[in-house]
Design a protein around this nucleic acid. Structure first.
Lengths: 211, 211, 211, 211
DNA sequence: CATGAATGAGCATTCATTCAT
DNA sequence: GATGAATGAATGCTCATTCAT
C-alpha cells in the first residue's frame, strides 16, 4: 500500500508556475484582493513555499511585469526584419500579429493588470511604459513615417496618428474581454483587423475622386 | 405617539461628498486598498457617519457606479436631438464633446474604476456595460449607419467601425492619463480630435482619384 | 434584563495598563516569546486596540523603557537634598532605599528586562545606560569621593569601588528573585543592607589596630 | 538480519559545534529570536542535520546548560585542594581565577543566557542553580566560615557576606560586557580584583586603631 | 445624531520541523 | 547519512464594522 508523497521537489519550474497563477488572480481580482494563499493553491504549493521564491507579494507583482517585458524586445527585431515591406503591408502584418496575440486572454492579462495597478505601483507602470509602450509606439511611428516618406500616406501628425492605429485594437479587446461585448468576434480577430485596416487606410468616406 | 418615518433617505441620493471622495481614492488606489477611514476624512465626516449613509464599503462602490449611470442616459437624448446634422458633423460634435469631457480626469475616473474592478464586481461591470457602453455604442452605430444610408460613408461593418471611432479616444486618454505619455496633448484635446477625425474620415492614404 | 456592554471607553489609562501587562510578560517570557494578544488579554482589551496606542510591539518595549527612565531623574534630586549628611550616612540612606525598591518585583522587572533584551535592542540598552546607570553610578562615585575628601574613606579607586557598593545589591536581588535563593531574605532586605554596609564600610577582617 | 543498535548516540555528547554556535546566537539574540537555520549555518552543517543530533530547538538549549554544568563540578574540587591556604589567600585565588574566566565573553555567555531565559525554562534555571550556583555559593561560604573560625574574619552573617564577595564581580562584568561601561577595564581584570579584595577585606574606612 | 474607541476576522509573513531526494 | 525544499501552525498587524459615549 504505497502512500502518496506529500510533496515533490520541483525547484526549477516553481517560480513560473507561481507567476502564472498570480497573473490570473491579480488580473481577475486585483493585487490587494488576491491572497498569497490562493496563489499558492493555484500554483500547487503551500503558502510558505511561495516565500522561497519571492520575498513578498509585491515582488511577485514586480517579477510578473519583468517577465513580461523581457521577451518583448523581440518585437523590435521582428519589425526590423520585415522592414523591407511597404508601410501598408507592415501595418497589416503588425496589427494582425498584435490582435491575434491580444485575443489570447493570457497575453492581454498583463497589460490589463498594469493598467489596473498603475496607481499603486507607479514605478512598475513607469517601467512598463518605458520598456513596452514607448518601444511599441516608436515602432508604429516609424512605420507611419515611412509611409509618409514613401508618399503612400498623407502627411498626418505621426504621434497622434498612432492613436488611430492602436486605439481600435485596444477598444476591441477591452469591449470583448472585459465587458463581454461581441465576445465571439474577439476570439477570431481577423474580421476586425480587416475592418480596422480598411477604415484606417481608406477612411470612412468615399474617396473624393471616386465620384 | 411616534409615527414611523414613511421613508428612509436612500443612500444613493445622500452625501455626494462621500462619493466624490471615494471616487478619487478608489480610482487612485483601487477598491481594496482604500480605507473607509480615508474616505471619511476626505469627505469631511467621521468614520462612523459613513455607515449612516452606506451599509458597507461595497455599497459605496455600487452607489458610485449608479450615480454615474443616470446622467449618461442623456447622451442618447442629446444625440437624438441633434440628429438633424449629417453623420460627419454629428461625429465631430460628439467626439469633440467626448474628448473634452474625458480630458477631465474627474470624468475619466469612473470608467477607469469600473475597468479596474470589473473582476471583483461583475454585476456592476455588467450594469455599466448595459447602461453606458451599450447605449454609447448604439449611438455611434446609429450615426455611422446614418452616414452609410446617406451615401456619405462606405458600407463598412458598423459594429466593428465603432472601434475605430472610440478606440483612438480611449488610447489617447489612457496613454496620457495613466502613463503620462504626451500628457500636455491630453489636456487640450482639440489637436487630437482634429487629427483623429481627419484620419477616420479620410483614411491614412491619398484618395485613389487624387493621382 | 440589562446586558453587559461589550466594552467600555477608557482611553486615558489604557496605555499604562498595556505597559504594565507588557512588562510582566516581557520580563517573564522575553520580548520575542510574548504575544501581542497576550498583552492585550492581560491589559483587558482586544488585540486590535493595542495598536491604537502603540505602533508596534517594539514600540511597546521602547515606551516601557522610556516610562521607567523619566521618574528616575528624581534620584539625583534626592541625593542633592540629602547631601548635607556625611558619606557613610548617605550611602546607608541610598542603599536602603534602593534595596527596598528593588525588592519589589515590579521595580526589578524593568532592569531585568533591559538586561535580557540588551542584545536585541542596543539603542534602548544604550539609552537605559545613559539615563539610568550612568547617573546612578555618578551619584555613587560622588558619595564615595566625598567620603575620601572628608578623610572618612580611604583613597580607593572610585569607579571600581562603585562595584563594591552596587554589586552586592545586584547579587542579592538576582539570587533571590531569579533563582529563588534565600527568597524570604529578599523580601525584607533590611538584614541584607545592614550586613552589606557593615562589610563594605569595615571590611571582612578585624581592624589592624584592634589587636 | 539487521540487529538493533545497542545504543543511540546521545545528543548531549555529539556535536559541540552546534552547541557552540547555539550559545553564541542564543546569548546574543535570545532563544526565541534565534533561528535553527542560523545555528546550522554557524555550525557548518545543514538545517536538517541539526535534527539528527537534537530533537528540537528546546533540546539544544537544554544540552547547552547540561554541558556547562558538568565541568563546573571541578571548581569545588580545586577549592578543596587549595584549602591549605588561609581564607584571605583562598579568596584572592578564587576571585582572580573567576574574574579572569568571566572576563572571557565565552565564559560569561552561558550564565547570562540562563539568566535571560530563566522565565521560559524554569526547570533549567532550577537545575543551573542547584548544580552551579548552590555549589559556588557553598564554596564561598566555606571559605568565609573558615576565615571566621580562624579569627581572621569578623563574625559576619556568612550567607549574606557571600553577596559582597561575588556581587562586585557580577556588577563589573555586567556593566562592562552588557552596557559597555569601562569596557577596557573589563578585559584586564587585575586592577578590579585588587581593588575589590582590598575593599572587601579592609573596608572603605580607615581602621579605628589607625588614629 | 456624530464620533472614534474597540472589536475581531482576516491576511502577509516567519520558522520549527519533516521528508523526498 | 546529509541536504534543503516544502509544510503549516503561529503571530504581528490591518481595517471594516459596531456601539458606548
Amino acid at each position: 500500500m504505497q502512500s502518496e508523497p506529500k510533496w515533490r521537489r520541483r525547484a526549477d519550474d516553481r517560480p513560473d508556475e507561481v507567476l502564472d497563477a498570480a497573473l490570473v488572480l491579480f488580473s481577475r481580482n486585483g493585487f490587494a484582493a488576491t491572497k498569497v494563499e490562493d496563489i499558492a493553491r493555484d500554483a500547487g504549493i503551500s503558502k510558505g513555499a511561495i516565500y522561497r521564491y519571492f520575498d513578498s507579494k509585491e515582488k511577485i507583482f514586480e517579477s510578473l511585469v519583468r517577465r513580461a517585458i523581457t521577451p518583448l524586445a523581440d518585437q523590435a527585431v521582428i519589425l526590423a526584419q520585415t522592414s523591407k515591406d511597404d508601410a501598408e503591408t507592415l501595418l497589416k502584418t503588425v496589427l494582425t500579429m498584435g490582435a491575434h496575440r491580444l485575443s489570447d486572454p493570457k497575453f492581454l492579462a498583463l497589460p490589463r493588470l498594469v493598467l489596473q495597478e498603475a496607481g499603486r505601483f507607479p514605478e512598475l507602470a513607469e517601467m512598463y511604459r518605458r520598456e513596452v509602450l514607448d518601444k511599441g509606439i516608436a515602432a508604429f511611428e516609424l512605420i507611419i513615417q515611412r509611409g509618409i516618406d514613401a508618399g503612400t500616406f498623407r502627411p498626418v501628425n505621426v504621434p497622434l496618428a498612432v492613436r488611430n492605429v492602436i486605439g481600435p485594437v485596444l477598444a476591441h479587446m477591452l469591449l470583448g474581454q472585459v465587458f463581454g461585448i461581441d465576445e465571439d468576434q474577439t476570439r477570431s480577430p481577423q474580421a476586425f483587423v480587416d475592418s480596422h485596416l480598411d477604415i484606417l487606410i481608406n477612411g470612412l468616406t468615399h474617396p473624393q475622386g471616386a465620384h
